[in-house]
Design a protein around this nucleic acid. Structure first.
Length: 537
RNA sequence: GCCCUCGUAGCUCAGUAGGAUAGAGCGACCGCCUCCUAAGCGGUAGGCCACAGGUUCGAUUCCUGUCGAGGGCGCCA
């Protein structure tokens, strides 16, 4: 890599000049301003105090020395500002990137090996099986699936998991609600009042007992949720049943082990987890005085089970669950698991608007906004792209009308259009009798237009973006890159004709290489997000 | 009262493991189609990076506090 070459040239120069201390880790960054070169080091600023010399003076000395013997791929070194050392890299480096992209194709380009095959379990959505998925589940669904894609691309072995709370009080109430609707009696006080209950009850077979109704209702809700998720292209490897842990004794076992480990105690007729010992702000009840389990206990058993199956656990939770992070980590700690192996990602709320007005209720059902109806309204691609548009750390507002529009202010269409245009060039080339042939660095040197260089620079940057988005579990960084890249593609499309009378065949060929590589880059980005890359629009 | 996330252009948001002149899209205004999709491209205007301290050669970025927005603080799930 070029930055390694630069780092070692800095080290070598310092050694030869007798400047110390030489830091173990030399920091190289990409300057925001291109005039400052392609790579920049703050080395002189960092060591100036310890070296007892002025930073600018050190920088001048080092850059002059390196200029006397430039490393391969570097065309110039200069100093600027308070003491930055700036490197300008040869364009041939960028042509090599282009060749690499073409060789790797959309199945290999951008793939990294930072995951080292580690097993990571990504648990997301995990809605109660008591009704259809609604708008509140959408962000977690899109986010969880995207990080699963990204982690998989950087070398983790990824498992997607959905945890079903298929037992307990909520299921009882759900069953009673279905039963009431089936029999035409009043839905219980705290019951489910949604329209869907009426519809589902009508689909239910006659004459079922309450436990049978619950089983049927659970299966039906699961099926409904699976369908909706499939509409977004989301598929889980495991639908983990809470009930199964009652049946196989896992919950009993976890309670026993907590007691044996002195991590729980009896008080006021209830069993408590000593979570304060492990960093929580208060102790939590595991078994209520009436003998019922709290929601926490099966959850603890479930997480322990996941620890046995994976090296790294990722949970995607809504903002309303942030208060449970400390207790879950405490419980895992108490069971002897490393709480750092559990990453809990909190997604902030999303407000939906339609032409500027907040949408709280669904038009059709009059109650909840079903996720299904959002997908129907704006499509799977727009749903995913819009929900991934920004960091999950901040609350989001987006306009359904905008997301559904086929207009330039819609970011989904902007990016997909860039891909379609690249394909359109390919079709045109074929019609004109050109076929894309991979070229050498020398043949690619004809690509010197500002627009072309911009595309190459973005392609070069992309693996770093993927790396960062994986480390930070931040798919929106991929989105930002695809938008920037689409912008570069549209600019190229506008200014650089690939086929035309005043374009030489050599240039056409070189540009076709660029077009195909761009298509690969954009496709890789959209694939990671789970958004289609259409050939035409 | 305590905890979590956020506060950047008129609007929606990027950026920040501390770096040089803080970016994009939309909206506004002005331009650009005989030609691979104008679903596009370019330009102009628009900023005390909420506020106040601290650390640092350097802070929008880190720390503390204040203010503001949203979400949580059950033997509910």
């Amino acid at each position: 890599m070029i930055n390694e070459t630069i780092k070692s040239s800095l080290r070598q120069a310092m050694g030869e000049l007798g400047i110390s201390p030489i830091p173990s880790d030399i920091n190289l960054e990409r300057p925001a301003n291109r005039d400052h070169g392609d790579w920049s080091s703050n080395l002189a600023l960092v060591i100036s105090k310890e070296a007892g010399r002025q930073a600018r003076e050190l920088a001048d000395e080092i850059s002059e020395h390196i200029n006397g013997n430039l490393p391969e791929g570097v065309v110039g070194v200069s100093t600027a500002g308070p003491g930055f050392i700036n490197f300008k890299v040869s364009l041939s480096w960028l042509y090599q990137i282009l060749i690499e992209v073409l060789e790797k194709g959309s199945t290999e380009f951008g793939r990294l090996e930072i995951g080292d095959g580690l097993n990571v379990n990504v648990e997301f959505v995990s809605a109660n099986p008591t009704g259809p998925l609604h708008a509140g589940h959408a962000r977690g669904a899109c986010y969880g699936d995207a990080i699963a894609n990204i982690l998989s691309a950087v070398g983790y072995s990824v498992h997607r998991e959905f945890y079903m709370n298929d037992r307990g009080l909520q299921m009882q109430i759900y069953g009673q609600s279905l039963q009431a609707r089936k029999e035409g009696t009043a839905v219980p006080e705290e019951g489910y009042g949604g329209e869907y209950i009426i519809e589902w009850a009508s689909l239910m077979p006659e004459g079922l007992t309450l436990p049978e109704i619950i089983d049927w209702g659970c299966a039906h809700a699961q099926l409904d949720q699976q369908e909706t998720l499939a509409g977004l292209g989301i598929h889980f490897d495991t639908w983990f049943s809470e009930k199964s842990m009652i049946e196989n004794g896992d919950i009993e076992k976890v309670l026993g082990d907590l007691t044996a480990g002195n991590a729980s105690y009896e008080k006021d007729g209830a069993t408590w987890l000593s979570s304060t010992t492990f960093g929580d702000d208060k102790d939590r009840v595991l078994v209520k005085s009436d003998g019922e389990l709290t929601y926490l206990t099966p959850d603890v058993a479930y997480h322990r089970n996941k620890y046995e199956r994976a090296d790294w656990l990722i949970n995607v939770w809504g903002a309303d669950h942030h208060g449970y992070v400390a207790r879950m980590k405490a419980a895992m700690h108490a069971l002897g698991n490393d709480p750092d192996d559990l990453s809990i990602q909190i997604t902030q709320l999303v407000k939906l608007v339609r032409s500027g007005k907040e949408v709280k209720l669904s038009k059709r059902q009059g109650d909840i906004i079903e996720l299904r109806s959002i997908i129907e309204e704006i499509g799977s691609d727009a749903t995913r792209f819009m929900y991934l548009l920004q960091s999950v750390d901040s609350k989001q507002t987006f306009d359904l009308e905008l997301a559904a529009s086929h207009a330039m202010e819609n970011p989904v269409y902007y990016v997909q259009m860039a891909h379609a245009r690249l394909c359109s060039i390919g079709r045109k080339a074929e019609e004109e009798g050109f076929s894309q042939v991979n070229l050498s660095v020398q043949e690619l040197e004809i690509l010197t237009h500002e627009r072309e260089i911009e595309i190459l620079r973005l392609l070069e940057l992309f693996p770093e973006v993927i790396d960062l988005s994986a480390r930070e579990l931040a798919p929106h960084k991929i989105v930002t890159w695809t938008r920037d890249f689409a912008n570069a593609v549209h600019g190229f499309y506008h200014d650089c004709y690939v086929i035309g009378e005043d374009v030489s065949p050599k240039l056409t060929n070189a540009r076709l290489n660029l077009v195909v590589a761009s298509r690969i880059g954009l496709k890789v980005g959209l694939d990671l997000l789970g958004v289609n890359a259409p050939d035409k629009m």
